[in-house]
């Protein structure tokens, strides 16, 4: 497999990751969100493996396998169980309507393309063109956290944001050192657990997972 084809496949995967990032914004059902998130993880892991193959960096295979197990199977499963146990409402509730979110998303993609233009000119890696996509994925994850009401959608947004960071790392510098990556992976897992515990806590306190309830925590004037 020559480098050119690998770069092409990588571009396609980048496009798919961008698509899934938008899919997360557009999807109305929570289980649908989990599926899309799992797909995003899958594309990310394939992309990591391909970058590892073309660059000859074998530690990227390990990251790829980590991504695969964690983000494609483990985390979606944990979230699935959480949603099931907590009997969360199956529809995503949004604060900004979906078409508007999409338009903001498109603007963010253009913005990140504009931001990464100087880096693209300096970098010599085959994967440099995907950097804009990575940055856009981060921003879209953040956008999702901002525009959605429920805690579960927030954590999915957070995880998507992390996916974007990871993708940025592989595309800009061929990945972080393995130790860092392991640490991050572990962090994510722990974060998921902590989120889970929080959900239970929030629910027992407020009888709801709507983050609007948290507004009550402030002092009364």
């Amino acid at each position: 497999m020559n480098v050119n084809i690998a770069a092409q496949i990588n571009s396609v995967l980048a496009a798919l990751i961008l698509l899934t990032a938008f899919g997360l914004l557009v999807q109305r059902r929570i289980y649908g969100l989990l599926h899309i998130f799992a797909w995003q993880g899958l594309f990310l892991s394939i992309s990591t493996a391909i970058v590892g193959y073309t660059a000859g960096l074998h530690h990227l295979y390990i990251s790829a396998i980590l991504t695969l197990t964690l983000k494609v199977f483990a985390l979606p499963y944990i979230l699935y169980v959480l949603i099931h146990r907590l009997k969360i409402h199956k529809e995503v509730e949004d604060m900004v309507n979906i078409p508007t979110t999409m338009l903001i998303g498109i603007a963010l993609v253009i913005f990140s393309y504009h931001l990464t233009a100087p880096i693209r000119e300096l970098s010599t890696l085959v994967t440099r063109s995907t950097l804009a996509v990575a940055l856009a994925t981060v921003m879209l994850g953040l956008l999702m956290m901002i525009t959605r009401k429920k805690a579960v959608t927030q954590i999915i947004g957070f995880l998507a944001l992390e996916n974007g960071l990871f993708f940025a790392a592989t595309s800009a510098t061929y990945g972080m050192p393995l130790v860092v990556e392991l640490g991050v992976a572990l962090d994510i897992l722990i974060a998921a657990f902590i989120f889970g515990i929080f959900f239970f806590q929030i629910r027992t306190t407020f009888d709801s997972l709507d983050l609007k309830e948290m507004e009550k925590l402030k002092e009364e004037d």
Partner: peptide, 23 residues
């Protein structure tokens, strides 16, 4: 239908963006 066609617009725009960004 608004959302349906909004997604169509989104996909087409992503196509345009990915032409410039990735190809």
């Amino acid at each position: 239908v608004t959302e349906f066609l909004g997604s169509a617009f989104l996909l087409a725009t992503l196509g345009m963006l990915s032409y410039f960004m990735l190809e």
